[in-house]
Design a protein around this nucleic acid. Structure first.
Lengths: 400, 400
DNA sequence: GATTGTTTTTAAAATATTTTAATAAAATTA
DNA sequence: TAATTTTATTAAAATATTTTAAAAACAATC
C-alpha cells in the first residue's frame, strides 16, 4: 500500500469506499472517544483486519494515537485508539451583537487560546476588521486546519451568506468566503443556535437523543432542532425561526418589520424594555432606586432575591415563550428541551413557568415524557458545535 | 452461489452488505422506475459486475424483470430492469371518519381491487369489524405480502398504537398488531397525512424535493413534513400536529379539550359550523333556501359560482390556516407547500388566500421562492405513501 | 454497406476483503 | 504457580469485488 493512500484523490470505487471508511472511523472516534478495533468493526459493519489496516494508515498519518488498553472481564485486553489532539487546530469565530470571540481549539476540544474582539455586528467594515483581528490573534507562525463561524440571523447554506446582516457580505462575497480568501484556510459558517444544538448533540444533554429542541433565550430567541438525529436546516438554511412567529396581532413593531413577533415579548431585550417602562410608570421594586439605569443581571439578581416585580417580569417572559414553545412541541414532538442563553441565569424561575405553559397549551400525549433542562455546558456548546460542524465538513472534502 | 442466497439469514459481514445492496437496488428501482445496470452501479457506488450478479439473483427470485432497452445517442443499448409488478401484493387500509377503504395494490402501484367498508372510526368493535371486512375482501385464496394501515390521530411508532382512538387498541394490542395476528401477514401503521407526504415525495409533487410541507385540509387539519429528504416523525411519531396549536385564546372548545385550536377555525368542520350559524342568523346567500341543511360540496360549489357569503367563509378558513401555516414555514423553511384534502375543491379561492396570509405573516426571505400547489394525485398519494412505507419496512426486515 | 466510434456486456485477471485458523496476552481457576 | 478460559491480534487461506481487457451491439459516418 502506497504511503500517501490517504491523500490520493482517485475516483475509483475502492477509493471512494476507503475514504468513506476513514471518514467514518475519524467521526466515530471523534464523538465516542477512545475505541477498540473490534468496536469500530462492529459499528461500521466491516471486518477486524480491514479496520486494523485503516487504523495503521491513520496512525502513520498522525491522525490516530494508541492510548492504552481497556479493561475487560477476562481475556486479552484490546488496544484503545483515539484522535491525536494535536494533529491540527481549528479556529472558531463566535460573532455576537457587540463582540466576537476567537477561539483556537484542538481535536480533543481543548481550548488553546482565546480572545475577544470589540466589534459591533452592524459595523460597516465588519469583514475587514474581523479579518484583521484574526490575523493579529494567529500571529504569523500558526496555520489552523479550518475556520468555523457562528452568527445569528438568517444564514444560508455553508457558504454562509447572511441575509440579516448584509454588511457582512462584501461585494457579493459572503463573510465565510471573505475570511477564506484572506487566511487561505477552508472556512464554514453556521447559525449560532444550530451550532449550540450540534454541540449539545455531540457533547451535551442531547447526546444519544434523536429528537430535541434547543431554545436560545438571549437578546433574541432562537430555536435549534434535532429531529431523527439530524439538524433541521430547511431549504435555505433558515429553519427554526421561532423568534419571528406572530404571537400578538396588536403587539409591538419588531425590528424585522413585522408586528408582535415572539421576540418582542419573550427575550432579554423585551424584559429590559418592559422593566424600564414599568419602573418609569411607578411600579415598586428593589430596582426602583437604580433610576431607570438597570441591567439584565440586576433584574435576574433581584428576582432570585425575591423581588416581586422582577419575578413577575420573568414569569411573563416564560409564559409567552412557553406558548411559542408549545407550538414547536406540537410540530416536532421532542423528548427533551434544552434551554440556553443569558436568561438561563434565572434558573428555575424560568423553567417552572415554561413547564406550566407547556402543561396548559400542549396535548397530554406530547408533554408526557418531556424534560426541560438548562444546559450545564452553556456557551461552550456553541464552540463545540461549530468545531464539530467544521470537522465533519472537512471530512466530507475529497482529500484529508 | 447457492440459489437461496437471498433468503439466507446469516449475520456475516458479506451477508449484511449483500442484503443492504439488494434492498438498495429494489428501493432504487421502485422509486426511479426502469433502470440500467450502470445507472445502478453509479448511484450505489459499486461496480457493474457486482450489480449484474445481484440483478441476476433478483431475476431468478422473480423480483426483477428485464423490460427492454433504453435509447442512447450511440453505442450498444443498455437493458432496462424493473420490478416485477406481480411478485406480490399489498393491502392498504385507509381508515376515515365514516368508512374504511380497502385497496389491493401490486408492486407497480396498480390498484387490483378496492372496496369500501361502512365502519365508523369510533365503533367499539372497530378491530373485529375491520378484520372481518378484510377477510371478506380477500376471499380465501389470496395471501398478500404485507398490510399497511393509514389513520388519523396520534399514531405512535410502527406498531401503531393509536392514542386518539383508544377503541382501536384491543386489550393493549394495537390495531396493527391485531390485524397482523388475524391474517398472519406483517402489518404496519402510519399517520394518514404522513402517508400522503411519503406518496407525494415518491410519486407526486415532492419528487426530487427535500423540504416540503403538506397540508391536509379535511374535517381536521394535518401537516406532513419532509425535511432534508426525510419524513419528520418526532420522538413518539406525533410530529406535525398543526391542528391543535392555539390560535385564539378566546376561541371555541376543541374536541381535544383545549381552547381555540387551529382546527376550530380552519377545517371543513369549522366551515360548515360557521355557515349554518350565520345562515341561521339571517345572512343572505344562494344557500339560504337550503333551510340549514347544507353540505361542504354545496358551499364550495356556491363559492365557485360567485356566492359572496360562501366565498367569504372560504376566505376566512384560508386566512386562519395561512396564519398557522406561516408559523410552520418559519420553523421548517420549505421550498414547496402541497395542499390536499376535500377543501382543495375550492381551488384558487383557497390557494390565493393562503398566499396572501403568507405574504403578510412570513419574513421576506422565507417566502421568496415558496410555491403553493394543489396535489393533482390527491387521495391516491395516501395509498401510494402507505404502500411505499410498507415496502421499505419490509425491505428492512431480515429476510425477503 | 462497410468502417469507425461509442457504449454495454461478458470474461479474465488483479486486487481487496473476509473468513478461518493460529498465536499472543491477560484473567480465572485448579 | 500452572492449566484453562477468554479475548485480541496476526497470519494464511478462502472468497468476493473491482479492475482491466475483450467481445458484442448499436449508431453515425464515409
Amino acid at each position: 500500500m502506497p504511503p500517501s493512500a490517504l491523500k490520493k484523490n482517485n475516483h475509483s470505487v475502492v477509493d471512494i469506499k476507503k475514504k468513506q471508511y476513514i471518514g467514518d472511523i475519524l467521526s466515530e472516534v471523534y464523538s465516542s472517544g477512545p475505541l477498540t478495533i473490534s468496536q469500530l468493526a462492529k459499528t461500521l459493519h466491516t471486518s477486524v483486519p480491514s479496520i486494523t489496516g485503516l487504523i495503521n494508515e491513520l496512525m502513520s498519518e498522525n491522525w490516530i494515537l494508541e492510548v492504552g488498553s481497556s479493561k475487560t472481564k477476562s481475556g486479552r485486553r484490546p488496544s484503545l485508539f483515539d484522535l491525536n489532539p494535536n494533529k491540527n487546530t481549528t479556529i472558531v469565530l463566535d460573532i455576537n451583537l457587540y463582540n466576537t470571540t476567537i477561539v483556537l481549539i484542538n481535536l480533543r476540544n481543548e481550548i488553546l487560546k482565546t480572545d475577544i474582539l470589540d466589534l459591533e455586528i452592524g459595523d460597516a467594515e465588519f469583514p475587514e476588521k474581523l479579518s484583521a483581528g484574526l490575523f493579529n490573534f494567529l500571529e504569523k507562525s500558526l496555520k489552523p486546519w479550518a475556520v468555523g463561524i457562528s452568527v445569528s440571523g438568517l444564514v444560508g447554506g455553508t457558504d454562509g451568506v447572511n441575509y440579516t446582516y448584509d454588511n457582512h457580505n462584501k461585494n457579493g462575497v459572503s463573510l465565510a468566503n471573505f475570511i477564506q480568501q484572506q487566511i487561505k484556510v477552508p472556512t464554514f459558517m453556521l447559525h449560532d443556535t444550530k451550532a449550540s444544538m450540534i454541540g449539545e448533540h455531540h457533547f451535551g444533554l442531547a447526546k444519544d437523543k434523536k429528537n430535541v429542541l434547543l431554545i436560545n433565550l438571549n437578546w433574541g430567541v432562537g430555536l435549534g432542532i434535532l429531529s431523527n438525529g439530524e439538524i433541521i436546516q430547511g431549504a435555505d438554511g433558515f429553519a427554526g425561526e421561532l423568534g419571528h412567529i406572530q404571537v400578538n396581532p396588536n403587539g409591538e413593531l419588531c425590528n424585522c418589520g413585522k408586528i408582535g413577533c415572539l421576540e418582542t415579548v419573550a427575550s432579554a431585550s423585551a424584559l429590559i424594555k418592559k422593566a424600564k417602562k414599568e419602573l418609569k410608570a411607578g411600579k415598586i421594586s428593589s430596582l426602583s432606586k437604580m433610576n431607570g439605569d438597570i441591567s439584565l443581571e440586576q433584574i435576574i439578581d433581584a428576582a432570585i432575591k425575591g423581588d416581586e416585580f422582577s419575578i413577575d417580569l420573568i414569569f411573563d417572559i416564560g409564559r409567552e415563550l412557553g406558548k411559542g414553545l408549545s407550538i414547536a412541541i406540537h410540530l416536532f414532538n421532542p423528548q427533551i428541551i434544552i434551554i440556553d442563553g443569558i436568561m438561563t441565569n434565572a434558573g428555575d424561575l424560568i423553567i417552572s413557568t415554561l413547564q406550566q405553559a407547556i402543561n396548559k397549551y400542549c396535548l397530554k400525549d406530547f408533554k408526557k415524557n418531556i424534560e426541560i433542562l438548562i444546559s450545564p455546558i452553556g456557551e461552550k456548546a456553541k464552540i463545540y458545535g461549530v468545531k464539530s460542524y467544521v470537522f465533519h465538513k472537512m471530512l466530507q472534502k475529497q482529500s484529508i
